[in-house]
């Protein structure tokens, strides 16, 4: 598996460069917005990738709640963190597109606000994982992740249910785009999905290493404990070892 990583990384880098070329050179220029519309090829695939990662986070959180599987918990942490990165890209590129097209950076429109709320929910998820020492943290985080995932369909379908300034969704929105734009959009989504998969892979390895370090620290504290000091109890109560601060 370790040998596959550099090969996949090289292929993803080539795909990202190709997708960038497609977005900047090959895709036709939109009639009314001009070149600024090309932000769409980074903005939309980043949003779809974030939604996909939050969906995986939901599945992993449910699996953790049902089976208490630490690997599912690790997958949940990893996908939430990488999902927040992609959601940040969405929240940054959106206003950069809006400024020349709408004349404003931000408006408290339902689509924009619900996306910001989604980002805040997952940031709070990560803050909970980072700063809570309780052994119950993974359970609380899994429940929070389920509530966070409920916001994803609200973000996507908000355009159908409410009057909004945001353009209609590309899938199921009733509008139509040039087939060449579709092609470029899908290439960029594929490139960003491969990139997200590689980041998740690296982050999962980091999470495994972090848990190894915590186990080693717990063992060390058991060995270094002065007579009468109950280090085993410390591990059992989640102050050290595998359950401690599962960031």
């Amino acid at each position: 598996m370790k040998r596959a990583f550099p090969i996949l990384a090289a292929l993803t880098a080539i795909l990202l460069v190709y997708a960038l070329y497609q977005a900047l050179v090959v895709a036709p220029t939109e009639r009314t917005m001009g070149d600024v519309q090309r932000i769409f090829y980074y903005h939309v695939p980043s949003a779809w990738t974030a939604f996909l990662l939050f969906f995986v986070n939901l599945v992993a959180s449910v699996v953790y709640l049902v089976r208490r599987n630490p690997k599912a918990d690790a997958v949940a942490v990893v996908t939430a963190e990488v999902g927040v990165v992609f959601c940040t890209v969405v929240l940054v590129t959106g206003p950069i597109w809006a400024r020349p097209v709408w004349g404003i950076w931000w408006t408290w429109d339902v689509r924009l606000t619900s996306t910001l709320v989604l980002w805040l929910i997952y940031v709070s998820y990560l803050v909970l994982r980072r700063f809570s020492d309780s052994a119950q943290t993974p359970v609380l985080a899994a429940v929070l992740a389920i509530f966070g995932a409920l916001d994803v369909p609200l973000v996507y379908f908000s355009i159908w249910f409410f009057r909004t300034q945001h353009p209609q969704p590309v899938i199921g929105g009733g509008g139509s785009i040039d087939p060449r734009m579709w092609h470029v959009l899908l290439i960029n989504w594929l490139a960003f999905s491969c990139f997200a998969f590689l980041i998740c892979w690296s982050r999962y390895r980091l999470e495994s290493l972090r848990r190894d370090v915590e186990e080693a620290e717990a063992l060390e504290s058991l060995l270094d404990a002065p007579p009468g000091h109950d280090a085993k109890a410390k591990v059992a109560h989640g102050e050290a070892g595998f359950n401690r601060r599962p960031q």
């Binding site: 960038l20 917005m33 001009g34 070149d35 600024v36 090309r38 932000i39 980074y42 903005h43 980043s46 990165v85 940040t88 890209v89 940054v92 590129t93 950069i96 597109w97 400024r99 020349p100 990139f195 980041i199």
Partner: peptide, 22 residues
């Protein structure tokens, strides 16, 4: 011409965010 700056700003911001995270 001005909109090109916004386009480049969005692309550069995207890669800066990813680079910072990596």
């Amino acid at each position: 011409m001005k909109s090109i700056r916004f386009l480049y700003a969005a692309y550069v911001a995207t890669w800066l965010i990813h680079a910072f995270y990596l």
